[in-house]
């Protein structure tokens, strides 16, 4: 890695103050550090946000679960409250990376990074999450902007993610056999007024599937999914899976997600 300064912030304010165009925030570092090691990214300063009080931990209400940005995947996976109120979210967390990644990686880091194959962004979209930042609240639908791109402004820090508790939900992932990231991950959530279906791994970045949502809103069952036509047009093709295969797997995973719900 190219040399950089390591700075720890103790408050959100301090973190923002320390940040500039040459810096970035460091939470678990599970994506950031490998990228810097491979010299795909370089910064003058890394601003550690793990010492900031109040942006870690899980708060549950009847309507939502609010998870602090620096909460690790392992903590979410092991949380009894999450398991009780949105079990699919605990399942998702339990399936991220490997145990060591889960011990260190954080929800805020995952969302801020917006890797096209990361799991959490799909939960944000499907569970109609609100991203609480140091500056504002952002609806998940407006947060994810493109591949590795979000609505976050420079120096803006995610503090917590507030997931709405659905009536039913399920997440199913078809992992890349090498990296174990999602080739396709489908998150389906049924709310009182709507069904939301988010897909990760398949496109440039996480997106909602109108086709699935429409079909499932009319009839929340696997037979409804059978009839859906998923277009492969905008989907990724790479050495791991063609767009056509991804389109097919979206349906298979959607049915699996539904069966978990």
């Amino acid at each position: 890695m190219k040399n950089f300064n390591f700075k720890s912030a103790t408050s959100t304010k301090e973190a923002t103050k320390l940040s500039s165009v040459k810096t970035t925030f460091l939470a678990g570092g599970m994506t950031l550090i490998p990228a810097m090691k491979l010299r795909l990214a370089a910064y003058s300063d890394l601003i550690n946000i793990k010492k900031i009080k109040g942006i870690s931990g899980i708060k549950v209400s009847s309507k939502s679960i609010r998870i602090g940005a620096t909460t690790t995947h392992a903590e979410v996976a092991a949380s009894k409250e999450v398991g009780k109120s949105i079990p699919s979210l605990a399942v998702l967390a339990e399936g991220i990376g490997d145990p060591q990644v889960r011990n260190r990686g954080t929800i805020g880091g995952s969302i801020a990074n917006n890797d096209p194959a990361a799991d959490y962004p799909s939960a944000c979209l499907a569970l109609n999450a609100i991203i609480h930042t140091s500056k504002r609240k952002i609806a998940a639908d407006k947060f994810f902007k493109g591949m590795f791109e979000t609505d976050l402004k420079k120096g803006e820090l995610i503090e917590s993610i507030e997931f709405q508790v659905p009536e039913k939900s399920g997440y199913a992932k078809f992992p890349n056999p090498a990296s174990r990231y999602a080739i396709v991950g489908v998150y389906i959530a049924k709310f009182k007024n709507e069904v939301r279906a988010a897909i990760t791994g398949a496109g440039n970045y996480v997106f909602r599937s109108n086709e699935l949502e429409k079909a499932l809103s009319a009839n929340f069952s696997t037979s409804a999914i059978d009839k859906v036509n998923i277009s492969s047009k905008e989907l990724n093709s790479d050495i791991h899976a063609s767009a056509e295969y991804r389109a097919h797997i979206i349906k298979v995973m959607a049915k699996k997600a539904l069966s978990f719900s």
């Binding site: 460091l26 570092g29 490998p34 090691k37 491979l38 392992a74 060591q100 011990n103 260190r104 990296s179």
Partner: peptide, 22 residues
């Protein structure tokens, strides 16, 4: 790329990949 796990140590009692930790 933090995949192989040959570097795993315990940090405050939990296993982590030391090659991906400052």
């Amino acid at each position: 790329t933090s995949q192989c796990g040959a570097c795993v140590v315990h940090l405050n009692g939990k296993s982590v990949k030391s090659c991906t930790t400052l």
